[in-house]
Design a protein around this nucleic acid. Structure first.
Lengths: 208, 208, 208, 208
DNA sequence: AATGAATGAGTGTTCATTCAT
DNA sequence: AATGAATGAACACTCATTCAT
């Protein structure tokens, strides 16, 4: 059995350094991505921003896509962590309209923080290979499914997953588009309606 | 007897040729777009696929973007027409669950037809200038708002617009992701749940 | 013995038409050249301006250069004719300062008429093959030489030619640059000084 | 002992390499310009002639024009330096016929050295933007004006400038055309006559 | 003779990637 | 390990010329 596909032996002594460089590159990639968009994020710009030479990038990443994938993965992870946290905190108090609204507020806040990066993420994610795409928001799907299973015991397993998937997709997209497209509607109105959308849907599953 | 050195009939085939050429280019653009994605769709590839020389593209389109815009516009128009048709047909019979489900089926069917192109469209739309972005799905927004205003007279104008925007965003994204990501859930299950999502939300606005 | 290198037989019946077309093309070429400069004068522009198709140009000219050469040749001929006329008229009254000044005025007037075309001519002439280059202003050289030979009998033949060549070159260039560069100097001042340049030089050859 | 991981000496060869590369490109540009003329001097040709890849040109120059401008600027500077030197040396000994002839010899010698490049220069100069055009020969204009002001105190300031401008234009053009067109006249004859042209003109301004 | 659509080699330029140092 | 100069295939686009009609 091969424990490590990537032999650690040779890397170990330099790992500290490597990790630091990878961080620097990813940070530079993020900055450039936010500033210039995906297509404008050239390897030369990233290297310059990281204060290293273009050639050095290739000591740490096999190609340009790997760098930006990492940037987006990390950003996605951060988003997911924030939303998960809010989700878990809200779930503790049942799935009341207030809890749902709380999660939605957390999502809008998270998305509002770095619209440029968010934009790059949603533009790029569908282009990525399936694995990467699946990974993102998967944990939220699971959290949602867990919450649903707990709150709506009469739902079948298959239904739970589908309902969770639908809800996450719907809410995620509406909040992201609100953050990115900035339609003229009042934020509170959107939050209220989105809460209503979720709550009325969930209520439908519990017989009165 | 040859009355006219240039018989009027001659303009016809010329025009037909031009139209045919535009069609050929757009078709080639569509194929290349589906195969290689937006960035991979170079003018040379499109020309080769159309069986013409690169220079010929520029007899019919001012630049590369115009070609791909046309491809995507046409595809978006086709989608929109299908969905609008279903929407209008369903609305005639009020906003019953059956009507809603009918529209959702139409959407899934439409999106299932050419997932590669759909993928290119949803990737590219957010990058397009506001006008193009606004145009697409705007009509659906309006149809939705009209239907809402008719069915839920107690909603304020601002609410109607926001509710329509939210519903269209949510339903469109969920159906598109279902068509593109092909999650394992049964199609009918998804249709049922999505119908429930919409109907329960709409019901919430009418006092029982 | 071959009387006509270009057999007239087949062309004759169409010659009227051909001549008219050549005229139209040359006129269009001149207009485009004046408007867009040498590099901007594309065959498509010329054809469009002439109201014919690009392909038709090649019925009358072997290539683009031939068209623009003809345009410039004709312009050069017109310039030359004007200057020659002034030259001949002035020479009749000896080579007095007044006569010299008269020729210079004629040159400035001629050059001022169409600076864009003049500009194209002086930019392009040096690029042309020797024959074309030599032809232009050659007649002026000869007129000058004749005038010199008449007025300065003590000059050797070789000297006459060289002196004429030098004088024509100098005067032509100074007047052309004055027309094209529009330096700040007063026109009359330039005319006076240029007259003085010529006259004092000519006087040097006649012992007082 | 290695005091500096990057010994200062290393920058030296790097810089030398850059300078060497610029030189190589400019030299290639000069060769291609002389061989194929301005329009025929494509970046690909220049790169090939320099033995480098097309992309490398853009490490040293922002675009094609910058390369050819540099080629022509350098050549113009060399010409101007030679003529200026001769001019200054001759002026020290007053404006005698011998001095004038000396400057003319220097000009002819300078122009004779690289007629192809001279040709490209005189073709391109009038197309360049005013600044570049003005720069070239401007210093000669000024030297001439200074010499005139010193030698002909009775000339007004306006006259001095105009006279200098006329003289420089005339002499420059005649010598350049002699170098490029190679008319049959004996070089000494042309030098003598051109000297006479200048001297007799200058004499006219000093009352005997 | 006239058309004008089609051509295709050519342009200037970019940028992810390599490799000699 | 790090450099950064060099690469070269690829890009979008042009235009003098050809040729089927």
């Amino acid at each position: 059995m091969v424990a490590h596909p990537r032999p650690a032996a040779r890397r170990e002594p330099r790992q500290q350094r490597s990790v630091a460089m990878v961080e620097r590159i990813v940070a530079a990639g993020e900055a450039v991505l936010a500033e210039r968009g995906y297509d404008g994020a050239s390897t030369n710009h990233i290297a310059a921003r990281a204060g290293i030479s273009p050639g050095s990038l290739y000591q740490y990443f096999p190609n340009k896509a790997a760098i930006l994938d990492q940037v987006l993965d990390r950003y996605a992870d951060r988003l997911e962590a924030r939303v998960s946290r809010a989700f878990v905190a809200a779930l503790a108090r049942s799935m009341s309209p207030e809890s749902v609204r709380g999660v939605l507020v957390a999502m809008l806040d998270a998305f509002d923080e770095n619209p440029r990066l968010l934009s790059a993420l949603v533009e790029q994610l569908p282009r990525s290979e399936g694995g990467r795409r699946a990974r993102f928001a998967h944990r939220i799907d699971e959290l949602m499914a867990t919450a649903l299973a707990a709150g709506q015991p009469e739902l079948s397993d298959a239904s739970v997953e589908a309902v969770a998937w639908i809800l996450v997709r719907a809410v995620e997209h509406v909040t992201i588009r609100y953050a990115l497209d900035r339609p003229g509607f009042d934020r509170n109105l959107v939050l209220d309606e989105l809460t209503a959308l979720v709550v009325s849907y969930l209520d439908r599953h519990v017989p009165p």
